[in-house]
Design a protein around this nucleic acid. Structure first.
Length: 999
RNA sequence: GGGCGGUUAGCUCAGCUGGUAGAGCAUCUCGUUUACACCGAGAGGGUCAGCGGUUCGAACCCGUUACCGCCCACCA
């Protein structure tokens, strides 16, 4: 006998431990006949190592686990590769914040000291998210867990080596280079960031118009014309008018540019203007870039602080002056007026405007909406800065990455001979994300991969410093970069060739391994020997891009790499298509010559119930663990308001939370949460998580549990059973329905339609199995012993077993618990049992027709009784207006009795006055309840039914009388309409009779 | 400016290949018949955003408008 309910808190951790200890999460051993298709692999999108589980992780991992458990049950060798990401900026930020709370700053410590703090923080919090993923039921192979920075304690861990090798090889292939370019600089973190880490936000700003006076008191006639060429303004000017949203950058102007066709300025092109405040002469030049119709048509060119200006300056050989230091303060340089040095850029802006105004060069200030770039992590305004950085020539990798997702019709991979040079290709699901991916790939920009941080893969590049005249060392020189990772002669020779071919300086020394590099880090100036390692680290996404193969052991050639690359599917949300999916594609193709995954399933983002993105600062986050384990409203409020950036928001958040969830959450368990996420993982763009719905699916689990309990009470014990040999129509029918549902659930999982799979299983369990089969089996199960009872017990148990299997990927815990509790013993745990593979021959049309007929009769009888408010306690005979009694009425008399409140079945040739009547398959059934029914109401009910039938008939007649329809529509459709019409006509006839009988 | 998506029951959303508009929650009525009240039975509720087109037939295909959301780029 089972407990009355499933207790997730008691069972989940016990079951998880049982699975994990049994080795069920590890891929099964390779079998002799295995092909690639017998392997199934997923690499987890590595969560931030020090992060904690949020709803995005929950939906992402639920979907992966469904696929993993399903494929495991199909008998495949399944690897779900787990691990975490070091998350450079995010983690360094957290650790710096924690240090700040202790009054310590990164700058006060050495790199080594700081990194010790980060590793300590990783040790403290790093296991957190993996424990949480376990609570969700994720069946990853934890024995293979990886970390993007590698494990310094484990010499066999190749994660760090993979990054070095990737960097070196790409460098040698000309795919990585070092350059002085304008990059996005984050003044808060004091590092370069990539384009993708910049968020453009529209803000209220100003548009300042300045006069730049012509040198030597020169003047010109400034003429403006309207569209028809009429002169609207003509005046003598001794200045050119420019406008800017960033006045402080004018200190670094190198020129003023006008369009070559701009008539207004033709006479002064080539002349010099004296830059106010800076008191420098800069030329007026022409370039295609200025838009004649915008502003004054003249643009100040600040090459070192604006991406467009940078291009103009490069084209025209205009000097670029860097104005700011790494914190965004105006820095000392030959062109910087003393008064601004050290001034923050925003203070400098005000000062410059005031000073220009004071000199009489301010024309006007307009209000203007401007798009301003912000660092996505720091939230501060990004400053374009001219710095030395490492770049990946992404454009060279993009064409292959685009080709790999280019698909023929119906997603059929392009045959190799038709120009697809890769083995296999990648399909996006839903397909439309391919467009997003292509669009970005097409316009791809160089990818800045160096970060001025400490936490990350330090760039494996060594510089030989120059000795300056005063004897000090300069590390600026970049032409002596040497990177070699492997201790083998062939690589050494290759590297040597590479450098000599390019005519590098003879001081170049080839270093064959990192240890040798490290040994030489002290520069010996006297002998010009020594090196200096680039202090920067790589963008986190550089190592994430290697994840699908680095986790499998690359650069070593491992069995796992052979078996599980390319991976079967990548499951992720659309917000990291560019960051991650695209980079994995480029790096996977480059290093493996194969796509990293066959399918990319893009799932929705989880939003709150109001459709807002969950965010800690809004206070609308839901912690998956709270929904699994339950939380009181006070705890929930405390969680949401703790550590807010703006503590003044706390009362608002508290009020909102208490209103939304006055009672907090019950412990719904992981299964309910998973089922909810699966059923909402439609192919739309977002999921609004509804707590009511989670409660609903918790109820579903209880329903299943209770049905199993019923089976126990009636000795429905799993045993050897051949579904094809069933005799009773009821059993044939449920077997048939099981086969149909299995087919549907399988099809839906295979095509990533998780919501449809979940719905199909849900409906089958609740409606078909519990509400119909279970009720209809009661007379047999509680009746006399014999073959029918035995068969029904076995069929019940068999069906329940199939249900547990179908539901297991979605609700692993409750199904595993039932699997083990309802049987004396099982050969295998459910997690490694065989997925049902039921023959179509089990689908029995005749049995289904009979049972459906009984169901219709019961439903109609219930409906008419309910309409007339007849209490269920009031049983009545069923009168059949026919010549002979349908044998099914006898067969199912025991079912009709409790379910339709029928106490006997009799033939009649006359419906008594005041009886309820209903029509099924053209036969009228009556329930004599004279005195209990309201004749008027019954007339109204029958009339309504008759009207409905008439309306349908009219609709069909309209179609059938249209020759265009009968001629052009397929015969099947026309016949269907004819059949429907006949059925309605028969029903209408009987309804009219029934009305007549009422009198 | 370019692109992608959305608009279906009170709410949240399904609706695959064009062929009788669906689910959950909520609402209303009845009910404790020995699996389950985290339950059962029944009911009500829709101009599928608007307009136009294709088609025998459109929630679905095409065009267009409106509103909402997201992504990318950007005029200094």
């Amino acid at each position: 006998m089972l407990e009355t309910k499933f207790n997730p808190q008691d069972a989940e951790q016990r079951l998880y431990k049982m699975w994990e200890e049994s080795g069920a999460f590890k891929p099964r051993a390779a079998k002799p006949g295995d092909t690639k298709d017998d392997n199934f692999s997923i690499v987890i999108p590595p969560p931030n190592v020090t992060g904690s589980l949020h709803m995005g992780h929950a939906v992402n991992n639920t979907i992966q686990d469904i696929l993993v458990r399903y494929n495991r049950m199909r008998g495949k060798a399944v690897l779900w590769q787990p691990g975490t990401d070091h998350a450079g900026i995010a983690t360094q930020m957290v650790v710096e914040r924690r240090l700040a709370a202790e009054g310590k700053a990164r700058k006060d410590m050495t790199r080594e000291e700081f990194l010790e703090h980060v590793w300590a923080w990783k040790a403290e919090s790093g296991g957190n998210i993996n424990q949480q993923l376990r609570r969700l039921g994720s069946s990853c192979d934890w024995s293979r867990e990886k970390f993007t920075l590698g494990n310094p304690e484990d010499p066999s861990d190749k994660m760090a080596e993979a990054v070095t090798k990737a960097f070196v090889e790409m460098y040698e292939a000309g795919l990585i280079y070092r350059d002085k370019r304008l990059v996005n600089w984050d003044p808060h973190f004091q590092t370069a960031i990539s384009d993708l880490e910049v968020e453009n936000i529209e803000k209220d700003g100003h548009f300042w118009h300045f006069k730049y006076p012509l040198e030597g008191g020169e003047t010109y006639t400034y003429v403006e014309k309207d569209e028809d060429g009429n002169i609207t303004l003509s005046e003598e000017r001794d200045y050119i008018s420019i406008a800017t949203t960033r006045p402080e950058t004018m200190l670094g102007d190198g020129a003023v540019a006008v369009h070559p066709d701009d008539e207004r300025y033709k006479s002064i092109v080539g002349k010099m203007v004296r830059l106010p405040l800076a008191n420098r002469l800069i030329p007026i030049i022409t370039d295609e870039y200025p838009d004649m119709d915008f502003g004054s048509g003249a643009v100040k060119i600040t090459g070192a602080h604006d991406f467009n200006d940078y291009e103009v300056a490069k084209r025209n050989d205009i000097p670029m002056y860097s104005l700011m230091d790494e914190r965004g303060a105006m820095c000392e340089s030959e062109i910087m007026p003393a008064k601004y040095i050290g001034m923050d850029r925003f203070k400098a802006r005000k000062a410059v405007v005031a000073d220009i105004d004071a000199e009489g060069f301010l024309i006007k200030v307009e209000d203007k909406k401007i798009m301003q770039p912000y660092g996505d992590r720091s939230g501060v305004v990004i400053e374009p800065m001219l710095t030395d950085q490492w770049f990946v020539a992404a454009d060279k990798l993009a064409s292959d990455a685009m080709e790999a997702v280019a698909r023929g019709h119906n997603n059929v991979p392009l045959p190799k001979e038709k120009g697809n040079k890769f083995k296999g290709s990648t399909r996006f699901i839903p397909e439309n994300w391919k467009k997003t991916y292509d669009h970005w790939m097409k316009d791809i920009q160089p990818w800045c991969i160096s970060r001025q941080l400490w936490w990350g893969h330090r760039i494996p590049a060594y510089f030989i410093p120059e000795v300056l005249d005063d004897g000090s060392l300069s590390y600026e020189s970049i032409d002596l970069t040497i990177v070699v990772a492997e201790n083998d002669a062939a690589a050494k020779a290759k590297a040597q060739n590479f450098y000599s071919e390019r005519g590098f300086d003879k001081r170049v020394k080839i270093l064959v391994d990192l240890q040798e590099c490290e040994a030489l880090e002290n520069y010996d100036a006297a002998n010009e020997v020594g090196i200096y390692r680039d202090p920067d680290v790589l963008d986190t996404w550089f190592s994430s891009g290697l994840w699908p193969f680095s986790t499998l052991g690359w650069p070593a050639s491992t069995e796992e790499l052979e078996r599980f690359y390319p991976t079967s599917v990548l499951v992720t949300a659309f917000d990291i298509i560019f960051f991650w999916v695209a980079r994995m594609m480029m790096q996977g193709l480059h290093f493996q010559g194969e796509v990293p995954f066959k399918d990319v399933y893009i799932h929705a983002l989880v939003l709150d119930e109001a459709g807002k993105k969950m965010s800690k600062s809004i206070g609308n986050t839901l912690d998956p663990l709270d929904l699994i384990d339950g939380v009181t409203i006070d705890e929930l409020v405390a969680k949401r308001t703790r550590g807010l950036k703006n503590p003044e928001k706390a009362p608002k958040i508290e009020k909102m939370t208490r209103k939304q969830y006055p009672d907090g959450f019950e412990a719904y368990g992981a299964d309910a949460l998973r089922f909810t996420l699966a059923s909402m993982a439609g192919q739309g763009r977002n999921i609004r998580l509804s707590v009511d719905r989670i409660a609903g699916y918790r109820n579903f689990g209880t329903k299943l549990w209770s049905a199993a309990n019923f089976g126990q009470m009636n000795s429905c014990v799993p045993a050897a059973f051949d579904p094809a040999a069933a005799k009773l129509a009821l059993n044939k029918w449920i077997i048939s329905e099981t086969a149909k549902t299995t087919k549907e659930v399988t099809r839906c999982i295979e095509s990533y339609r998780f919501n449809d799979a979940a719905d199909a299983a849900y409906k089958f369990v609740w409606d078909t199995f519990c509400n119909w089969y279970l009720e209809m089996s009661k007379p047999v199960l509680s009746g006399a012993d014999g073959a029918e009872k035995d068969e029904t017990r076995a069929a019940f148990a068999w069906t329940l077993d199939q249900i547990l299997k179908l539901l297991h990927p979605f609700m692993p815990f409750i199904t595993e618990e039932l699997w083990n509790n309802i049987a004396e013993s099982r050969e295998d745990m459910l997690i490694i049992s065989q997925w049902p593979d039921l023959s179509d021959s089990l689908m029995d049309e005749a049995a289904s027709k009979d049972i459906e007929w009984v169901q219709t009769l019961i439903t109609n009888l219930r409906s008419v009784r309910a309409d007339m408010n007849i209490p269920p306690s009031k049983k009545a005979p069923l009168l059949v207006l026919a010549d002979t009694l349908d044998p099914r009425l006898t067969t199912y008399a025991d079912v009709l009795s409790p379910m339709a409140r029928v106490d006997s079945v009799k033939l009649t040739d006359l419906v008594p006055k005041g009886a309820l009547q209903t029509v099924v398959d053209g036969v009228t059934y009556a329930i004599p309840l004279d005195g209990l029914i309201d004749k008027g109401a019954e007339t109204a009910r029958l009339t309504k039914e008759a009207d409905k039938a008439q309306a349908e008939i009219d609709k069909i007649d309209k179609k059938l009388s249209n020759p265009a329809f009968t001629d052009k529509a397929p015969e099947k459709v026309v016949n269907l309409q004819k059949e429907r019409r006949a059925a309605y006509v028969a029903e209408l006839e009987k309804l009219n009779e029934a009305l007549a009988n009422l009198g």
